[in-house]
């Protein structure tokens, strides 16, 4: 496989942003281009991730291309998914040998509308969506299953909430009123507007653009069925499979940036991947505190790369998820060494 590295990233998240999507992305895209000294004509491929459902408009990503500057014409693609999957498409493009540099970005701006409605419309259109369950209720179904089977405990959830910073301590957690039985507000995400931009480069170019490139040594994504009842709520087969294919466990992981917007998902995924439940190094910016549809996954990859640039870690894992009950999962292993 061709060696590809992340050489620059910029991000922004706020609970309620007044800027529109273009105004949000211009400074981020400009920053990564300035940091690497590349102008748009020197970037082989541009790929983005966003949600038309969130924007309430078909092909909404075309408008956001104004933030890139698509003249003279650029080679460009888009996924109606988290930017982590735009990064995957870009990685495949690198493997095809047709590019040496790429710009990947993604964004989501849920504040003007109702994100819960958007998430409901993405459920099975015949069997589930007409019942309008919200995302918290669906996470709660899995939480009760895991708690009653004693596969996780309330203590696990409280620990995770403290680690994520949604509460100060256990007392505060247990005092909270139930939001979506058995979940408390501290178990559920606060939604944020936000975006991420990053530059990727292939071996030979990456070393010129970055002092310590974060090399992608493994990347894979898998999906489970959308049929809730056909899934065993105790496990996440797609996450395990993606981790195996990405070689997550070939060596120690110094830092895991996992995209889990609920405490119950955090605990379950850590168990599934044999990651420590109370890690020494933990994300500075847990998605439970700021979850941005379409950007949180790519942001995890940016944070995992940053840890390598800053020499806080040498081998990191970034995870992205999408869909109800963590239906789709992507694993990306980054390393300071090319391996």
């Amino acid at each position: 496989m061709r060696k590809v590295a992340i050489v620059s990233a910029a991000s922004r998240q706020e609970e309620k942003m007044l800027d529109n999507e273009v105004e949000l992305m211009v400074p981020l895209i400009s920053k990564v281009r300035e940091e690497t000294g590349l102008d748009q004509t020197e970037i082989g491929f541009t790929c983005s991730g966003s949600s038309d459902f969130l924007a309430g408009q078909a092909f909404s990503f075309v408008m956001t291309l104004d933030a890139v500057g698509p003249v003279p014409p650029i080679s460009e693609s888009h996924v109606e998914m988290d930017g982590a999957w735009a990064l995957y498409e870009t990685w495949v493009k690198f493997q095809m040998g047709v590019i040496d540099t790429a710009l990947v970005y993604s964004y989501g701006k849920p504040s003007p509308g109702s994100l819960q409605d958007v998430l409901s419309t993405q459920l099975d259109p015949y069997y589930v969506a007409p019942l309008w369950p919200d995302a918290h209720a669906i996470a709660a179904l899995q939480a009760r299953h895991l708690l009653e089977k004693e596969e996780i405990s309330l203590q696990h959830l409280a620990d995770c909430a403290v680690r994520a910073g949604t509460v100060e301590n256990h007392e505060e957690y247990y005092e909270q009123q139930i939001l979506a039985d058995p979940l408390r507000p501290a178990d559920c995400p606060t939604y944020a507007d936000g975006g991420v931009a990053m530059i990727l480069a292939a071996e030979g170019k990456a070393e010129e653009l970055c002092e310590k490139p974060a090399w992608i040594t493994g990347i894979d994504h898998r999906i489970d069925t959308h049929h809730f009842g056909a899934r065993n709520l105790s496990t996440i087969p797609s996450a395990k499979k993606a981790a195996e294919k990405a070689g997550v466990h070939k060596a120690d992981i110094d830092l895991a940036e996992i995209h889990t917007a609920y405490t119950v998902h955090d605990v379950l995924l850590r168990k599934e991947l044999n990651l420590p439940l109370n890690p020494e190094k933990s994300s500075k910016n847990h998605p439970i505190k700021a979850e941005t549809l379409m950007a949180s996954g790519l942001l995890r990859i940016a944070e995992a790369a940053r840890a390598i640039w800053d020499q806080e870690a040498n081998r990191t894992l970034a995870h992205a998820t999408s869909g109800p009950l963590m239906q789709q999962n992507l694993m990306c292993v980054l390393s300071g060494e090319k391996e």
Binding site: L131, P133, A137, A140, R144, H145, A180, D181
Partner: peptide, 21 residues
């Protein structure tokens, strides 16, 4: 096999009063 409680059904919900899912 598992359940949650909906205290405040959303506007689009087919149910007007609190119920379990």
């Amino acid at each position: 096999t598992t359940w949650t409680w909906v205290e405040n059904p959303r506007d689009q919900s087919p149910w007007d009063s609190p119920h379990a899912l």
